[in-house]
């Protein structure tokens, strides 16, 4: 009896855990929870894509050379490649991942965001092509006033 209960509970929990992920195409916080805890760009990339080998072309990244306010750095990124997803990382905050976008047939893949950086560092944008390869662009910038202290 105990065993039966255990089994049904486990199955119920599994079903609950699986449902949200299937409803939403790719919520990376549910499907790839380790990405958001990774402390380095390499670890985050490995967790999200299973590889850290990228081809440095095809992705355009625009950010200022010097950001006066690290709390809201304007970052533009785009690509004309055929992609499945695109993600932004940086190497100075406690965790590395900034965002990940799951793209579909409607996506034009031209984005602008404002992000935080604690100090001067490098922003890396990685796009996963439909061919399975990773394409990236990086930009190193100076941050005058760090933005993680609020």
């Amino acid at each position: 009896m105990e065993r039966r209960q255990f089994l049904s509970l486990t199955l119920g929990a599994l079903a609950l855990a699986v449902v949200p992920a299937s409803v939403r195409a790719e919520n990376y916080r549910e499907t790839k929870p380790t990405v958001w805890k990774a402390h380095t760009v390499e670890d985050a990339m490995q967790a999200l894509y299973g590889s850290t080998t990228t081809i440095e072309k095809g992705v355009k990244l625009t950010a200022p050379d010097v950001a006066s306010n690290g709390g809201a750095i304007p970052v533009d990124f785009s690509t004309d490649l055929d992609i499945k997803s695109i993600a932004v990382f940086q190497n100075v905050n406690p965790e590395s991942a900034v965002l990940a976008i799951s793209t579909n047939k409607y996506s034009v893949n031209d984005y602008s965001i404002k992000m935080k950086m604690k100090k001067s560092g490098t922003i890396t944008v990685v796009a996963q092509g439909t061919d399975g390869k990773l394409y990236s662009a990086s930009k190193t910038l100076d941050v005058a006033l760090g933005g993680c202290e609020g």
Binding site: Q90, S102, S112, I113
Partner: peptide, 15 residues
Amino acid sequence: DMTTSQFLSKNPIFK
């Protein structure tokens, strides 16, 4: 469909 982290700015603006 965008998954985000704490490193977007306060009152995040995006396009």
